[in-house]
Design a protein around this nucleic acid. Structure first.
Lengths: 238, 238
DNA sequence: CTGAAAAATTAACCTGGATTATTTTTTTTA
DNA sequence: TAAAAAAAATAATCCAGGTTAATTTTTCAG
């Protein structure tokens, strides 16, 4: 994370994700205004909350680097993990922008975000922005539906394989892999709370998947050992 | 559905949902252009598909009246029901507009839709449209996340109660209830494929819920018999 | 109105993942 | 660098909902 020094040197920071994903349509057009606002209050350290469930008037961000996880606590104290937000992706948009945040966003790695200043204004000054926003939301919706389908129709082993494969491919698309290895800051409990399993069963299943030589997690890194076998297990619907 | 006669008589049809939901922002502004396109090819009978999973260049609709269900078949032949689309709601938007439809939309009741003509053009001619689209998608995403959470954390009895309550409130908001009675065209198999249960278990559970006097389904109508008990079972997170 | 197909119902048995309990390892903090 | 806290690992038992197999009722086409 070296953009802070760029900022203080008066240089415009070029987002590593520019040209990819959400930023593309926004940044291609009104870079001036956007960057003017963007490079302020941008760093979060691991375990820091970007905003919490219930916060009023939380902001809209694009993740530049790092890893953010979206979670929600229900009244009975159970935690649901909705998804990981990876570099280039939007976070913080919801139907009622001014209402309380429907979930919490926590950084799992040191993270840098760029703030989208005024959504309503940007939408009217820049027609493509609204459509980008809608596309990003539709994409999130589709991802949630894929998780839903996997959780409903498949075994613990297949669910975990799906999750690993999904994250790997999402990172690979942005060249954030090192061969078959990716950073993996999720705890077993996070996997469990994403897939509707218990921590114990995730542990058992991860053990079996490692034994079978599919992939292994070690020191916050995940390495796929048998890519083909993983794909077979997941099926073609990633 | 009397709008066809309106059309042939040369009258502008006023959508019963105007002023609610998705249409609001669109129709308040460019009614002329919109209605010009809208009142054509609008009727679907029960069991008719609006579009099918895989169809190219399917259209964007707003449901005026009726009931549409969104489903997807996975390669292993299992069917997932994603949600019911109720009057006033948008259907057919997805990340890649020109790509194959990611699910099928089937009318469960005789339905009337109004077609949204050219999304990209509308977005640029009318800045609020993009934001409306994004809001609608965010709302769908939130609904999917609620179903996900319920499916993961709750028993069959609670899941079904949640689904009934969610549909009842969504219809009531549009005054499409008759007291505690609503139209209910979903089959037990549809409930099962929405909630990740077997038809047999849905049947068992519906029987128990009726026995316990919570609600009953009869001849495609659902009547809530004990609203308070239903709310208690569902919890406050509808 | 009638036969066939679709949907709903019922019963008996079984299993994947939950639950409870405890130990070991790793990470964090002082 | 040692103590405390968090995370991972392992084992034994249990049950909600799945599976299989019919039967009955409802819907619908001819």
């Amino acid at each position: 994370m070296n953009f802070r020094s760029n900022e203080s040197a008066g240089l415009r920071y070029t987002c590593p994700q520019r040209g990819h994903c959400f930023c593309k349509s926004v940044l291609n057009i009104s870079s001036n205004e956007f960057d003017g606002h963007a490079v302020k209050n941008l760093a979060f350290t691991a375990k820091q909350y970007l905003y919490r469930q219930g916060d009023m008037n939380h902001e809209l961000f694009v993740l530049r680097e790092g890893w953010v996880m979206l979670t929600r606590l229900s009244e009975d104290g159970k935690r649901q993990v909705f998804r990981s937000v990876l570099p280039g992706e939007l976070l913080g948009f919801q139907q009622h922008l001014q209402g309380p945040a429907i979930y919490s966003a926590i950084a799992l790695l040191d993270s840098a975000v760029c703030r989208v200043p005024n959504i309503v204004k940007t939408c009217s000054s820049q027609p493509e922005f609204g459509l980008s926003l809608a596309s990003a939301e539709a994409n999130d919706k589709m991802l949630t539906e894929k998780y839903l389908t996997n959780i409903i129709h498949r075994s613990a082993r297949e669910r975990i394989a799906f999750m690993v494969s999904e994250l790997y491919h999402r990172l690979k698309r942005r060249h954030l892999n090192r061969g078959y290895t990716i950073q993996f800051p999720l705890k077993q409990e996070d996997i469990a709370d994403t897939l509707g399993l218990t921590t114990i069963h995730v542990n058992r299943t991860l053990h079996a998947l490692r034994e079978d030589g599919l992939f292994e997690i070690h020191k916050h890194e995940l390495t796929i050992l048998d890519y083909d076998a993983l794909c077979t297990l997941v099926g073609s619907e990633v």
